[in-house]
């Protein structure tokens, strides 16, 4: 018979280990970087549906998001969902969409659009997105293996 004391000590050590590594994992994913599976056609052809991308959370925390970056943000219409779009305009920039609409992005907001302009629900539908909703910046694609590579910061400079 195994003494009760040994079992309880072992259990204590195991639970302690789980908490320890769980906390380290939480901090890493929350503050440093994370892997995300992108689902949906809105970022084609840059990111296909079901691609896995690596994101880093340091740039948004320091508020150093630049024009042309691909970002992961909480959806403004549903906080439980995340969206992956490209930053088209920063505060103070003028954006226009459709035929007649034109607006200046207010302070603290960004204008996000998908690369697949015809099949993307983005700022053209729900307006500018608050910077506080941005969670991370997409750094590189890690899956599928053939397409591994950093994302280019494609500065969109079309005089619309």
């Amino acid at each position: 018979m195994i003494p009760f004391k040994t079992i309880s000590t072992k259990l204590f050590v195991v639970v302690g280990c789980v908490i320890k590594y769980g906390c380290i994992a939480h901090c890493t994913f929350e503050f440093i970087g994370n892997f995300t599976v992108c689902i949906g056609p809105s970022m084609e052809p840059t990111i296909q549906s079901k691609n896995v991308i690596l994101t880093e959370n340091i740039t948004p925390r320091l508020r150093r998001i630049r024009k042309g970056d691909i970002v992961i943000a909480r959806s403004p219409s549903n906080p439980r969902e995340k969206i992956c779009k490209r930053v088209i305009a920063l505060p103070g920039d003028r954006v226009s969409w459709g035929l007649f609409y034109s607006d200046v992005v207010p302070r603290g907001y960004v204008w996000l659009e998908g690369d697949n302009k015809n099949n993307s629900t983005d700022s053209r539908n729900y307006g500018p997105v608050p910077q506080g909703l941005i969670l991370g910046r997409a750094v590189c694609k890690v899956w599928p293996f053939q397409e591994i590579g950093l994302f280019a910061n494609k500065v969109i400079d079309d005089p619309r």
């Binding site: 906390c23 380290i24 901090c27």
Partner: peptide
């Protein structure tokens, strides 16, 4: 190295 993440996680959750 172990204590800081535990504390941060506690405050965060």
């Amino acid at each position: 190295l172990v204590g800081v993440p535990i504390g941060v996680t506690f405050f965060d959750t």
